[in-house]
Simulated scan of single mutants.
Amino acid sequence: MLKELNPLLHSQLRLSIMSLLLTVEEAEFVYLKEKTQATAGNLSVQLDKLSEAGYVSVEKSFVGKKPRTVCRITSAGREAMAEYVEALKGYFVGL
C-alpha cells in the first residue's frame, strides 16, 4: 500500500522552498523569491503555511531602514521532508 504524500509538501512552490532550505543554513526572502521565481505575495503565503506547520522558522528584522526576512528549516521540517522522500520512493517500487 502506498503512503499518502504530505499535502503540505506536495505543492510545487512549498516543495521548492523546503528543498532550497535543506541546502543552506538560512535564506533571505529575496533569495527564495529569486530562486523559486514566485511573486512576493505567493511566497509570503506559502512561507506562512510552512511556518504554521512548524517546518520553517521566519525571522523578520531591519537592517538600517530596510526590512530583512530570514528563513530556516526546522528539525520538524527536515523530518517531514525525509518522510516525504521515503513515501515518494514507494511510488517507484516495481517500476
Results as ranks from 00 to 15, higher is better:
residue 2 L to S: 14
residue 2 L to N: 08
residue 3 K to G: 13
residue 4 E to Y: 10
residue 5 L to H: 09
residue 5 L to Y: 08
residue 7 P to S: 13
residue 10 H to Y: 15
residue 10 H to L: 12
residue 11 S to N: 14
residue 13 L to P: 06
residue 13 L to T: 08
residue 13 L to C: 07
residue 13 L to M: 06
residue 15 L to S: 05
residue 15 L to A: 04
residue 18 M to V: 13
residue 20 L to H: 04
residue 21 L to F: 01
residue 21 L to Y: 01
residue 21 L to S: 00
residue 23 T to V: 04
residue 24 V to I: 06
residue 24 V to S: 03
residue 25 E to I: 01
residue 25 E to C: 00
residue 25 E to F: 01
residue 25 E to N: 08
residue 32 L to P: 00
residue 32 L to Y: 01
residue 34 E to Y: 05
residue 34 E to K: 09
residue 37 Q to E: 03
residue 38 A to V: 02
residue 39 T to D: 11
residue 39 T to Y: 06
residue 40 A to I: 00
residue 41 G to P: 00
residue 43 L to Q: 05
residue 43 L to E: 08
residue 43 L to M: 10
residue 43 L to G: 06
residue 44 S to G: 04
residue 44 S to H: 06
residue 45 V to L: 15
residue 45 V to Q: 11
residue 51 S to A: 09
residue 51 S to F: 01
residue 51 S to C: 04
residue 52 E to K: 15
residue 55 Y to L: 08
residue 55 Y to M: 11
residue 56 V to Y: 03
residue 56 V to R: 07
residue 57 S to L: 11
residue 57 S to Q: 10
residue 58 V to S: 12
residue 58 V to C: 05
residue 60 K to V: 15
residue 60 K to A: 15
residue 63 V to W: 12
residue 64 G to K: 02
residue 71 C to G: 05
residue 71 C to Q: 04
residue 72 R to D: 00
residue 77 G to S: 08
residue 80 A to N: 08
residue 80 A to L: 02
residue 82 A to R: 13
residue 82 A to V: 11
residue 83 E to N: 07
residue 86 E to C: 09
residue 88 L to I: 14
residue 89 K to I: 15
residue 90 G to R: 08
residue 92 F to M: 15
residue 93 V to M: 13
residue 94 G to I: 11
residue 94 G to W: 13
residue 95 L to R: 15
